[in-house]
């Protein structure tokens, strides 16, 4: 047991220099924290990191095979992100390293944000706020009409913990819900479509909220967007690379799709400048998860998982990696 030992167990902190969590200080009081970015480094870093069994990965910090190679005794990475696209999953699988993620700590906030972006795009909220603040109302009198939200057909790409919360919210707007995912979910009343193009052709509001993997990269391509058409809008609260951004920008500029609400981009923090002039897009700096409630929930989850690991208890929000037996 941890309490019986003289030295607390070792925990590797894996993070980008500017990406820190407020629990780091608490962790240093409870564990032997090994942070390769510490200057000066921990005096016994080489020996301790060689024997360390657990790593905390903060945010989107890449966990590559090279990173894993530095820690030969590693058994588990506790992650703070909803996705695991920054992990070399194959390398983890071959070394039988377990991974945990944010689970549903963020799900309510991301679902709220997706609905907020969709309403903003259709009802032109941000554009109308700009219009009023610029003093244009008394001058131009009429502001153009928006498009109705209630009753629209919502198509959800990825009906996981976030997607199902988005569905529940849009149902209260009298919207019909359809989805696509790797396979049809049992006992779900929503219409299933086998692929994104088929979903898009039956959708007014296409919401992208699936995990980013090799299979889902650029899942929303020119064909899918053309099927969605100029009366449809895209909301992306997943990852930038789920959408072919170059094609998205071209189709927004040419009016081939009706609008977009984007919280994520392919090359953050770079955002295509062509979008800055458009009133039918709403742009957001990867903010969907950022409320104190979400951060508090994720920090609680990280602490619980670290404690559970060292006391051989089951982990929460563990990613099912299907290790070869």
């Amino acid at each position: 047991m941890a309490g019986d030992e003289e030295t607390p167990p070792a925990l590797i902190l894996h993070h980008l220099p500017n990406f820190k969590l407020s629990i780091f200080a608490l962790l240093r009081s409870k564990y032997t924290v090994l942070d390769p970015l510490d200057d000066p480094p921990h005096p016994s870093f080489p020996e301790l990191s060689n024997a360390a069994r657990l790593m905390l990965c903060a945010g989107p910090t890449p966990v590559t095979a090279a990173v894993l190679d530095r820690y030969p005794a590693l058994e588990c990475v506790v992650g703070s992100s909803a996705g695991i696209n920054h992990f070399d999953v194959a390398a983890c699988r071959s070394r039988r390293i377990r991974i945990t993620c944010a689970g549903d700590s963020f799900s309510d906030d991301v679902a709220d944000y997706a609905v907020g972006l969709a309403i903003d795009v259709l009802r032109r909220v941000s554009a109308a706020d700009r219009f009023v603040r610029a003093g244009s109302w008394p001058v131009r009198r009429e502001y153009g009409l928006g498009s109705k939200v209630s009753g629209k057909r919502v198509g959800i790409v990825g009906l996981g913990s976030i997607g199902s919360r988005i569905a529940k919210r849009f149902e209260s707007f009298g919207c019909s819900i359809a989805y696509t995912s790797t396979k049809k979910k049992p006992n779900i009343p929503y219409t299933f479509h086998a692929n994104a193009a088929r979903l898009a052709s039956n959708t007014d509001i296409l919401i992208v909220c699936c995990a980013l993997t090799d299979e889902t990269r650029h899942l929303i391509n020119t064909e899918v967007m053309a099927t969605l058409g100029n009366s449809g809008i895209i909301v992306n609260v997943g990852r930038g690379a789920l959408v072919d951004e170059k094609a998205l920008v071209e189709m927004l500029v040419s009016g081939e799709i009706g609008g977009a609400g984007l919280d994520v981009f392919e090359h953050e923090p770079r955002v295509p400048r062509e979008l800055f002039a458009l009133d039918n897009v709403v742009l957001s700096p990867h903010h969907a998860v950022l409320t104190p409630d979400s951060l508090g929930a994720i920090e609680d989850l990280l602490l619980a998982n670290i404690e559970a690991f060292f006391s051989n208890q089951p982990l929460k929000a563990e990613v099912q990696l299907e290790f070869a037996s």
Partner: peptide, 13 residues
């Protein structure tokens, strides 16, 4: 949602 999540401010930023 726009007020609580500061969506218009995010867009402006």
């Amino acid at each position: 949602l726009a007020v609580l999540r500061r969506i218009c401010q995010c867009d402006k930023y």
